[in-house]
Design a protein around this nucleic acid. Structure first.
Lengths: 137, 137
DNA sequence: TTGCGTGCAAAGGTTTTGCATGGCA
DNA sequence: TGCCATGCAAAACCTTTGCACGCAA
């Protein structure tokens, strides 16, 4: 499933994902950013490459909770990310990698007591981060 | 935001959601089931009412992980469901209400150590249930 | 040279919206 | 009677696909 050819377009898309790895970008945003950079890439190419990156596990897809279009972000350490859970702030979108022992207990507990094996790569905990929480209360 | 008028159509949609509360139904499925019942309701009415039920917190929306359309299911005990986490099987779609003390610790831990307040109504843990896990391994 | 990748435009599917009509209160 | 709700069709949206051309290897 991995791409066989290396092309300028793929590199441009990848560079943009890396540059914005703290955020999540929609296909449209990627397309727009590349156009603004003076290095436009066709919409379908963006969609197609993101799908293939997703299949390779190099990109995480967020199916918009509230809005419309899906967003993507690059997974820097694929092996590491499959071991821990992730948090996402509903307000500002901040994405947190949660490496922590209690979180490991969850998996064990769920398997032992509830016979449920959690998939860390598909699971995201939603809530409010400190910043957004305090600005709300 | 709550509906002001009670109509036959709203009651029909609600009845269907209650009847299928163990499943998650898409708008199209609801429309189809109602038509098969001999009590057809317009597509836009289904969409509009589901949105308002969602705003009232009476319905949970699943933005399809893999497929296309969103699905909905009735929240039987809204107050209770906001207190615990939920699991969903990626394979068969089983939805589990997880009332359990260790799970309560998670919220506390996340707030205390990570300054993150989890929103149970928006969070779903994904993985494989016992049945699907064993049929896979 | 081979065949994958690209880009455009068109198609596909889901959800939303405008507007005239219908029905609740 | 006044207004919200309904339903149809059209529009809006996001995503996928077909096809001819371009480009990597």
């Amino acid at each position: 499933m991995a791409s066989t050819y290396n092309t300028k377009q793929k590199q441009l898309i990848l560079d943009m994902l890396l540059k914005c790895k703290e955020n999540q970008l929609s296909c449209e945003e990627i397309e727009e950013k590349l156009k603004n950079n003076g290095t436009p890439v066709g919409k379908s190419t963006v969609y197609r490459y993101l799908i293939s990156l997703q299949n390779e596990g190099k990109v995480r897809k967020f199916t918009s909770e509230n809005g419309k279009s899906a967003t993507f972000s690059y997974i820097e350490d694929k092996a590491e990310c499959s071991k821990h859970l992730h948090l996402r702030c509903l307000s500002c979108g901040e994405f947190v990698h949660l490496s922590c022992s209690l979180m490991d207990e969850i998996s064990t507990h769920l398997v032992n007591d509830h016979k449920f094996s959690i998939d860390n790569s598909k699971t995201v905990l939603y809530g409010l981060c400190e910043k957004c929480n305090s600005s709300k209360g």
